[in-house]
């Protein structure tokens, strides 16, 4: 008696969203089955991988990173190398330096960096802010204007600044809006409703449902993604059908396991390996739960995760 297969198909799909323009455009989302269930049906576009670079350069980065980016001294030069990283689908510029409690880089400076980066690459660009709501709003408005027509995704609009980010990024300059909520399906949905009420079209929104490194409350990430996908596909909930993009690098590399020196914890072994594995394990878990794109930074992580995605297609 053969095994009776019962594929789980849905009469709904995750929105497909295109980033960038022309031949190098990249589309994420589009699945009408649960994440990575290619044996059930159409997974739409296989998950995509973004390579993160920071406007702060390679400050404090490990050898694998400094070797890869050897010779690159500006964000634009780094970006040019990043897009050549094997496995890269898009480049993500993280403007950490804009943080008013940190380097407090000016909006004008950031716009120049973003323009230079956009000019240096042909793959699509994602802009990540500094996590300061007011500063991000200012930053995104000016960068969205400067990069008009490039179809850039901005991470992120949060409930606190969704009006300014949504209006500037999504309406005034017709770019893509990342909607960031903190691991709660209802907050995620509420933000999508608010953004669409503002006039941003659902197909121009991607969700960052919040992320956590493996071991750091990842259960909330997993359950939120599980529920979002179940609602999007099973309930045909249009306000949760946006593709999910998860910035993994920043979370993974900032936990103790990935950061402490080998000298302090000799039995743990080389710090770089720990960081890479934290990034890889977190990314693989995110993809298993439903991320349509992940943002990573280490060349080994990018290569591994892209190979895994290829194997699961």
């Amino acid at each position: 008696m053969p095994f009776k297969r019962t594929p789980q198909k849905f009469n709904a799909a995750i929105n497909a969203m295109t980033l960038g323009t022309g031949d190098n455009a990249v589309t994420i989302g589009g699945a009408s089955v649960l994440p990575l269930y290619s044996f059930d049906g159409d997974i739409g576009n296989a998950p995509k991988i973004g390579v993160e670079i920071s406007d702060l350069g390679l400050e404090g980065e490990c050898v694998g990173m400094t070797e890869f980016y050897a010779g690159a001294s500006t964000p634009a030069e780094m970006a040019a190398k990043a897009e050549k990283m094997p496995g890269a689908d898009f480049v993500c510029l993280r403007l950490e330096g804009a943080d008013p409690n940190g380097h407090n880089r000016s909006v004008e400076e950031c716009v120049e960096i973003a323009k230079a980066v956009a000019g240096a690459i042909s793959l699509p660009l994602v802009i990540e802010g500094c996590k300061n709501n007011e500063k991000d709003a200012e930053l995104f408005e000016k960068i969205a204007a400067a990069l008009e027509g490039k179809n850039v995704l901005f991470l992120s609009a949060k409930e606190e600044n969704h009006k300014s980010v949504g209006a500037a990024v999504g309406l005034a300059y017709a770019q893509k809006v990342g909607a960031e909520s903190s691991v709660d399906i209802n907050l995620a949905k509420q933000l999508n409703v608010l953004l669409t009420q503002l006039g941003v079209k659902a197909e121009n929104i991607a969700m960052n449902l919040g992320s956590a490194a493996a071991g750091y409350g990842f259960e909330y990430v997993a359950s939120t993604m599980d529920r979002v996908k179940a609602a999007a596909l099973g309930q045909n909930d249009a306000m949760l059908q946006m593709p999910v993009i998860t910035p993994v690098a920043s979370e993974a590399w900032s936990v103790k396991e990935a950061m402490v020196d080998e000298a302090d914890f000799p039995e743990w072994g080389p710090q770089e390996d720990r960081g890479v594995r934290m990034e890889i394990a977190t990314a693989a878990a995110c993809l298993a739960c439903g991320s349509d794109a992940v943002i990573l930074k280490h060349p080994r992580s990018v290569a591994t995760i892209s190979a895994m995605v290829a194997a699961l297609k």
């Binding site: 709003a137 204007a145 009006k163 300014s164």
Partner: peptide, 15 residues
Amino acid sequence: DPIIRSLGVPLVTGD
């Protein structure tokens, strides 16, 4: 147009 685009954001946010 560019001025309108730049005015749109503060208008939408109530600024």
